Simulated assay, not measured.
Amino acid sequence: MIRSHLSSFAGLPVLPFTPGMALPDDPSAVAWRLEVEDFEADPEEFAALVTALRDEVPADAVRALVIGEWGSAYERALPVDLLVAVAEKWTSLRAVFLADLVSEQCEISWLTHGDITGLLAAYPSLEVLWVRGANELRLDPVRHTGLRELVFQTGGLPGSVTAAVGGSDLPALERLELWLGRRDYGGDTTPDDLADVLAGTRLPALRHLAVSNAEHADQIVAAVAAAPVVRQLKVLDLSKGVLTDAGAEALLAGEPLTHLRRLDLHHHFLSDSARERIVAALPGVEVDLSDPQAADVYDGREYRFTAVGE
Results as ranks from 00 to 15, higher is better:
residue 172 A to D: 06
residue 297 V to F: 06
residue 245 D to H: 05
residue 60 D to E: 15
residue 257 L to E: 12
residue 29 A to I: 10
residue 239 S to L: 08
residue 143 R to F: 13
residue 290 S to M: 04
residue 124 P to C: 03
residue 283 P to V: 11
residue 102 V to M: 09
residue 294 A to M: 09
residue 10 A to N: 14
residue 266 H to S: 07
residue 137 L to H: 10
residue 301 R to Y: 10
residue 295 A to P: 02
residue 60 D to S: 15
residue 145 T to H: 10
residue 219 Q to R: 14
residue 291 D to E: 14
residue 39 F to V: 09
residue 18 T to M: 07
residue 170 L to M: 10
residue 50 V to D: 09
residue 39 F to R: 15
residue 19 P to V: 04
residue 234 K to G: 14
residue 182 R to P: 00
residue 100 D to Y: 00
residue 10 A to V: 10
residue 301 R to M: 11
residue 202 R to F: 06
residue 11 G to S: 12
residue 171 P to C: 01
residue 274 A to G: 08
residue 230 V to L: 12
residue 284 G to I: 06
residue 181 G to P: 03
residue 223 A to L: 05
residue 62 V to M: 09
residue 97 F to K: 08
residue 114 G to V: 01
residue 280 A to V: 00
residue 219 Q to T: 13
residue 144 H to G: 00
residue 36 V to C: 04
residue 257 L to A: 15
residue 265 L to F: 05
residue 39 F to N: 12
residue 51 T to W: 04
residue 304 R to Q: 01
residue 65 L to H: 10
residue 122 A to N: 00
residue 285 V to M: 09
residue 134 A to Q: 01
residue 293 Q to N: 00
residue 106 C to T: 05
residue 182 R to I: 07
residue 230 V to F: 10
residue 152 F to K: 06
residue 274 A to N: 06
residue 77 A to E: 12
residue 5 H to C: 01
residue 151 V to M: 05
residue 196 D to M: 07
residue 66 V to M: 04
residue 214 A to Q: 05
residue 129 L to D: 10
residue 139 L to N: 00
residue 304 R to A: 03
residue 44 E to N: 07
residue 148 R to M: 13
residue 191 P to D: 09
residue 111 L to M: 14
residue 58 P to Y: 02
residue 213 N to H: 05
residue 113 H to M: 00
residue 41 A to G: 06
residue 93 L to D: 00
residue 256 P to H: 06
residue 74 Y to N: 11
residue 241 G to S: 03
residue 123 Y to N: 01
residue 17 F to I: 05
residue 291 D to V: 13
residue 253 A to T: 03
residue 105 Q to L: 00
residue 290 S to N: 09
residue 145 T to I: 11
residue 2 I to M: 01
residue 291 D to M: 12
residue 81 D to H: 15
residue 113 H to R: 02
residue 7 S to I: 03
residue 302 E to Q: 14
residue 272 D to I: 12
residue 260 L to D: 03
residue 264 D to W: 04
residue 307 A to N: 08
residue 187 G to M: 01
residue 51 T to Q: 14
residue 17 F to N: 02
residue 21 M to K: 11
residue 59 A to E: 15
residue 232 Q to K: 12
residue 153 Q to G: 10
residue 144 H to M: 04
residue 172 A to F: 13
residue 71 G to N: 02
residue 196 D to H: 10
residue 82 L to M: 11
residue 15 L to I: 05
residue 201 T to K: 12
residue 218 D to H: 07
residue 182 R to M: 14
residue 5 H to A: 03
residue 91 T to S: 12
residue 228 P to I: 13
residue 148 R to L: 14
residue 8 S to N: 11
residue 164 A to Y: 03
residue 228 P to G: 14
residue 255 E to N: 15
residue 125 S to I: 02
residue 194 L to Y: 02
residue 148 R to T: 15
residue 32 W to V: 04
residue 179 W to S: 14
